[in-house]
Design a protein around this nucleic acid. Structure first.
Lengths: 180, 180
DNA sequence: ATTGCATATATCGAACAGATATATATCTTG
DNA sequence: CAAGATATATATCTGTTCGATATATGCAAT
């Protein structure tokens, strides 16, 4: 699924500017999708050209002017269509796991700090998900709640796995170190 | 971490051709990194140019000739250096979760098949991890075992979450459907 | 005062994913 | 046994996208 389609999705939740769409990706969508300005602004321009969205220039006092985009009916139809034809991939890209696989090339102290860093990042992610769920607009969306619960479950399991296996792992690494 | 660095990592486990490196990404690394030929072949050419790897043309009977790459000492040093300076990111890119968030735009039957598809994909991933661990070359690598366990834990938690909350989720969706 | 953060749009370059091209050999299945 | 699928092997091309950067203003904090 490309950024263009995802922008249609965000616009289906209400009119928004590029900056506001970016905030959604950075906030509510941050656990399962990344998109920066470099993808969003060109995507919006294309959506307007193709008639999937209309654009209104809104002047503001004491702030830069906004370009607020609004989803058209054909845009909504295109989004529904894209949803039905999207395979539900779920991919992980993890430098954390790469570092684990090559942990025999690191010092025990470096491996320890790697695990602690991951634990603290997981903690941040969990807090962030809870924050999102507290906002009223999420609480009524069954799909968002289910997705958040799914993400939460995976994060918690990872946290518990690290906590329960940390000592054993570090011990095994040091033992192999001494042997060589 | 870019594909070039990851290729150094694969070569640190033994000499290999581009095709063989691709197999490692597709197999043992598939749970946390994606790389295709379009990234690997150019990366290897650059590594050779920079003196991080040497290349030997190996003719084979009844098979196409191979270009087997071998890590140099400077290449190994560069890889160790890259490991130490890599932040342990762990990112998810999930069309599955996007579809969940917009599940109010799908029919209950489509949502059900979405969940079943994810469950069956998780099952495949779990079997694949177990397969990798059975191979002897993995069994002695503490880091690989730990990473596999970590991935396993997250997958299992996702599976259990879906199984335990599927009915409630589908029920809530249908209830909202009737109301509107 | 000045540093940093939030609002807002926009673009550039390097990297990358996925598909495609090409050629041969082996394995599978009706 | 022939057809088709799968495995070995290298290579390139295109569209997409990530991350950084540029530009401009207002506001809060130090």
């Amino acid at each position: 699924m490309d950024v263009k389609t995802l922008c249609l999705g965000v616009l289906s939740m209400g009119d928004a500017s590029g900056y506001e769409i970016r905030k959604v990706f950075d906030d509510a969508f941050s656990h399962f999708y990344v998109a920066g300005y470099g993808s969003i602004y060109p995507a919006l321009a294309e959506l307007e050209q193709e008639g999937y969205a209309t654009c209104k220039n809104i002047e503001q006092e004491k702030r830069p002017a906004k370009k607020v985009y609004h989803l058209t009916e054909t845009g909504m139809a295109a989004f529904r269509d894209a949803l039905v034809n999207t395979y539900p991939n779920h991919k992980v890209r993890s430098e954390f796991m790469v570092l684990l696989v090559f942990s025999h090339l690191l010092s025990p102290a470096q491996v320890l700090s790697l695990l602690q860093q991951r634990l603290s990042d997981i903690e941040d992610n969990l807090l962030h998900i809870d924050d999102c769920l507290k906002r009223e607009e999420c609480a009524y969306q069954e799909g968002t709640k289910f997705a958040a619960g799914f993400a939460r479950a995976a994060l918690l399991a990872g946290k518990e796995y690290i906590e329960q296996n940390k000592e054993g792992f570090l011990g095994a690494l040091e033992y192999k170190d001494k042997k060589s």
